[in-house]
Amino acid sequence: MNILVCISNVPDTTTRIKYSADMKAVDYSGVQWIINPWDELALTRAIELKEAHPALVQKITVITAGGADADPTLRKALACGADDAIRVDAAGGDSLFTATQLAHAVKGEPFDVILCGIESSDYNGSAVGGMLAELLDYNSVSAVSSLNLDGNSIKVTREIDGGKQSIETSAPVVLIVQKGIAINPRIPSMRGIMTARTKPLKVVAATAAAPGSKVVGYQAPPQKSACKMIDPENIDELVHLLHTEARVI
């Protein structure tokens, strides 16, 4: 079984977002880039599965669409335990553009399980995984919070509206994963960092693709008004304000 993990290179979650002067673009200068947290958990689970089922899981490949500045992120994934990496040399664009690039690079390759994080912490689109599945005409299961292999049967837990379900499915499939899929993201070991030096990172040319949407501009979120402090000895005041001023109870 070959597992593909889709990786998005995103600004560190604690980054303060700055904009260009015309507010039409994000200013990425000085930003620390990381593996999107959900993708990192997906990768961690893939590695865990390979460790648990060495005979079953042959290879873990990571893929991203982006410029050469995404290479350190891919090499970190290799250091964590992925076997090889693919970068589609296509920066920018929306989720449809990205998914088209990934599908182009992956089509015809023998990936049995494709893992995608449920969203990226930059545009929070929750779109690439489902689009990739549709472009490849694979089954997909979304909001997956656990993944286990039982021979060739793939067992997952997914969140559904109002609860959760245990599901069995088979390859090829795109699994769109969320919290719970792995607990602690993998930290690369010295050995991993060393072996990453010689693992292949293949760069694939972009394909012509039209995005379906474009960013018009940004705004800082509206400032909250100052917090109104209430005396802990006078909780009735809080009740009163929530009822008459905020009108939420």
Partner: peptide, 24 residues
Amino acid sequence: AHNVTGKALAPRVAVRLNAGLVSA
């Protein structure tokens, strides 16, 4: 809706319809 179901279906629908998608 931007809930677990919408997140699962909207991207696939968008591809089927050659549509741009903006979520949330």
